[in-house]
């Protein structure tokens, strides 16, 4: 991120709903122009955090700063800077897509003459140009979600906050949506905060991610460093599928130096290496000797799913 300054800062941000802890001592810095992914399971406190950033919920203690402004005191100024796409966004069903956008545009005090143009471009950008005059009632889930993005494009804020934007959309729709988000970030330099529990989708477009479990931020960083953090001090696990498979192979693996444990699980064989060992180079040669071909080989702990799982299982230990 280099010399860029943080645009969203939270300092020991905490929110309790009665005895329930929604967010505990959150310290986060998000830089101008980056795509930040806030990842965590449902109920981890992601939405609460977002509402606090917008000044829609007051923190129990600690504070948030958005572009130097405190959302609880300068709610209006913050809401001018931030565009928010709520999780499962809703529109007025009886109005057309254009009328819905007009309403938010007017609430944002955008001059009528300019508004018309902005709505047209926004609808084109999200691929709804032909559906502007249709009632939102007839829209599919994916179209609503795209209309939600168009809503933000019309507002044209500095910061986009998207809560679970890909939920319930088909894979093709997700791909389009993510492309759109990436374009916003790359071409217009917008800061984008995405919250999600769907890792695979978000992983491709985030500059940095924060993993959020049970109200606490467990790890922050670019994906690669997160991977390294998790791998540090943890033995490598290899997932393997071979053809032809027989149980003698398991014995062969067990006898290998540097292998701690071998187990078969469905079509897969799992090998756990001793600490600091990596037997992958030997493995290929070994199998080739026996005329066994490898169908699948994966080192676990290197993609976000594993990181995510690791943090979930490791909850409380870390």
């Amino acid at each position: 991120m280099g010399n860029r300054s943080p645009i969203i800062v939270t300092e020991n941000l905490t929110k309790h709903y009665g005895p329930v802890v929604a967010v505990q001592d959150l310290n986060l810095e998000i830089y101008e122009g980056e795509v930040f992914g806030l990842l965590g399971p449902n109920g981890a406190g992601k939405t609460t955090t977002i509402l606090m950033l917008l000044g829609l919920t007051e923190p129990t203690s600690g504070r948030a700063l958005v572009a130097g402004l405190d959302p609880t005191r300068n709610a209006l100024a913050v809401k001018r800077l931030v565009g928010y796409l709520p999780d499962n966004v809703g529109f007025y069903d009886d109005l057309t897509a254009k009328e819905n956008l007009l309403y938010t545009g007017r609430l944002n005090q955008i001059p009528e003459a300019e508004l018309e143009q902005r709505i047209k471009t926004a609808l084109e950008q999200v691929g709804l140009a032909d559906h502007g005059d249709r009632k939102v009632r007839e829209f599919s889930r994916g179209m609503r979600q795209r209309l939600g993005i168009a809503d933000l494009i019309v507002k044209d804020p500095r910061i986009f906050i998207l809560d679970e934007p890909t939920l319930g959309i088909d894979p093709e729709g997700v791909r389009e949506l993510l492309n759109l988000i990436v374009r916003l970030s790359r071409e217009k330099g917008k800061t984008i905060l995405i919250s999600s529990h769907l890792l695979h989708q978000i992983q491709q477009i985030c500059d940095r991610v924060g993993i959020f479990v049970a109200g606490r931020l467990l790890a922050v960083g670019p994906l690669e460093t997160l991977g390294r953090q998790v791998m540090a001090g943890k033995p490598l696990e290899i997932e393997l599928q071979v053809e032809p498979f027989n149980h003698d192979l398991l014995e062969v693996f067990r006898s290998l130096e540097g292998v701690d444990r071998v187990e078969s699980q469905g079509p897969y064989i799992r090998l756990r290496c001793a600490k600091g060992k990596d037997i992958r180079p030997q493995l290929t040669g070994l199998l080739a000797e026996r005329k066994v071909s490898i169908l699948h080989l994966r080192a676990r702990g290197h993609d976000l799913d594993d990181i995510y799982l690791e943090y979930f299982q490791g909850e409380g230990r870390i």
């Binding site: 209006l76 709520p86 966004v89 529109f91 069903d93 609430l107 005090q109 809503d151």
Partner: peptide
């Protein structure tokens, strides 16, 4: 219920 309230309140209005 239409889930428009949070979007509405996120606009710069009191």
């Amino acid at each position: 219920n239409k889930r428009t309230l949070s979007r509405l309140l996120a606009q710069p209005i009191y």
